[in-house]
Amino acid sequence: MEILLFGIAKDIVGQSEIRISSDDAALHSVQELKDFMVRKFPEFGKLSSFAVAVNSEYAQDDVPLNRNDEIAIIPPVSGG
């Protein structure tokens, strides 16, 4: 699956998208994705918080992830 990255998330990973194959990790939920990101990129653990959007909507930790979903990491927002 492909994960879109914005703001500081893009800086931490060093690119605007990351592809996670099922060989890397089997991620079934938002919580599992968050845990994976912190494991793979410890800098995520230092953020104030970060959310995940599934199909461009904020998703709770128990929301399941499907291969065709549009998934994005949403670090703390700071518009305005």
Binding site: F6, G7, I8, D11, K46, L47, S48, A53, Y58, A72, I74, P75, P76, V77, S78, G79, G80
Partner: peptide, 22 residues
Amino acid sequence: KETVPIWKKEVFENKAVWVSAH
């Protein structure tokens, strides 16, 4: 300011900081 996914980076003379990230 609470919900819209827009991010602001403050650029100073010698550094740049994503606001509210940490």
